[in-house]
Every structure is written in C-alpha cells, then in structure tokens.
Amino acid sequence: MDGFIYFLIQSVNGLKLGSVYAIVAVGYSMVYGILRLINFAHGDIMTVGVYTILVLMTAFGVPLWVTVLLSVVIAIAVGLATERIAYRPLRTAGEEATLISSLAVSIFMQNLIMMIFSPQRRAFHLPEYLSRLHTIGFIKLSTMNIITFAAVFIILIVLSLVIKKTRIGMAMRACSDNLNASKLMGININAVIVTAFAIGSGLAALSGLMLAGEYKTIDPLMGFVPGLKAFCAAVLGGIGSLSGAVLGGFILGIAEMLFAGLMPTDFTAYRDAFVFVLLILVLLVRPYGILGSKEGGRS
C-alpha cells in the first residue's frame, strides 16, 4: 500500500476518534471558560447518558430519537443537579475546593452506576441503519461516523452564533472575561453558569451515544478517560475558544492514531504517553493553546 494512502487512512481513523473528543471538548470548554472549573464529572455525565439510552432501548423499546432526546434531558438534569449541589455552594471557596468536589462527584457517579447496573462491561448496539458501513474509496465509515463528523461543525456553528449574537451569549463572554465584574454589572451569573452546564451536559450525552455506538460496549468507567482527554483537547486548542476545542479534539484524535499507526509496534500500546508529551510540547510553545490568547486566560 502506498505510504501516503496509509497516512490518510490513519488520519481518517484519527478524525473519527477526534470528532467525539471535539464534541466533549466544546462542552468542557464552555464550563471551564466561565468557572475555571476542571469538571472531572463531565465524562461521567456522558456515561449517565449512555446508560439512560441502554435502559430505554432495551427495557421499553422506545424509538431511538426519543431515547436520545430523553437521555440528553436526563444528562442535563444530572449536570444541573451536580452544579447546584456540589459546585455552587463552593463557588466562593476557591478553585481547589470545586476541583476536589468534582472528583468526588465523578467517583460517586461511577460507583452509583456500578451499583444500579454492574461493573461488568456489556454490549451496546445501535440500530442497523446507524452502524451500516459505507465504503468511500479505500475508507470505510459507518453512518454514525458521518453524522458525528457533521455534528461537530453544526454544533460549532450554532454555538458560535449563540455566543456572538444573543443576549445570553454576550453574558457568557462577559462572565468568561471576569466573573465578579459581570456580577457587579448586574449579569445573572447563575443563569449563565446553568446555561453553560446544560449545554455541556447535553453534548456529553450525545458524544456518549457516539462513543458507545462506535465501540459497541459500555461500562461504568467509560466516560472518565475520554472526559480527561477532551479537557486536554480544550486546553490544547485554547481554552475559552470553541473552534480551539474542536481543533484540539481533532489534533488529539489524529495524534493518537498516527502514533499508534506509525511508531514501531513496540510502542503502540503506549500511544497515550506520546500524545501527552506532544501536549506538553505544544503548551511550552503556546501556553494559552493553539487558538487561545492571553486575554482568554483570566486576568
């Protein structure tokens, strides 16, 4: 096989993985941009969404679009509940307190899902029309891959418009700049934060569907690592910048696949280590991320 085609195939593998990271990263970026909260529980909201879909699909036989809608609603409800219970009361206590609190929420949710279901991995199947494979040249993609890829850009465009053109978007930008000043200017920061959490949790549920559909298995810990990687993607791309989060997601996904596909096979199992070295190198050169700026970081 031609070297260039091989490179292209591995890049497409990276784009498939990266588009899921990108969607999670956008949600992460919204919350982090405003609160500077590294929300460890973000990936576990994804898991909640996936298990909701599983229960609705297998137990009640509800059509897929209804289950997806319901799982997004439930993920948003859980996201808002954690914000209200575990983060809001700690908002004045400093970033460390909320960070630890989010880690606690994450572990709590993982264990709760293990208790309700079981720690065992189990099968997860999308309807046939979503997992059907299409051959385009030398590349094979499922319907779900194509939807995911398109979804990244639709989400990016819609959210960018919301942030640029609407009142709540303007308030979000203000809060991202300076939370306290925004409060003093009369902005309802709770409404802004709730909106950010709702968008982030909803996107997490969607990306969970995409991840579970791709790998056909789910387990109670499935969200944690993708959640962390998405956070890294958001930082890599430039925190607070939505296009940055998407770019970071794609770079991370492609880097993972290229490291695994091009390095000597002795190292392929350790691809994550190389990906994160790359992350450090990028941050050394661009401390605010690729598309980030100094103003993006809080003054």
Binding site: M1, Y6, I9, Q10, N13, K16, L17, E214, Y215, T217, L221, V225, E256, M257, L258, A260, G261, T265, D266, T268, A269, Y270, R271, D272
Partner: peptide
Amino acid sequence: VLTDNYMNKDPDFSAQIDRFLASN
C-alpha cells in the same frame, strides 16, 4: 509475521488493524 500491542480499556483498534492491513 507481525506483532502489535494495545492497552486494555482502550477500545479503538483501528490504527493497529490498518497497520496490519497495510503490512501485507
């Protein structure tokens, strides 16, 4: 003819499989 590696709980094997396919 070829040996490759992965990590448990890393559910994406596409890079390894495509390398295998390309190796002929």
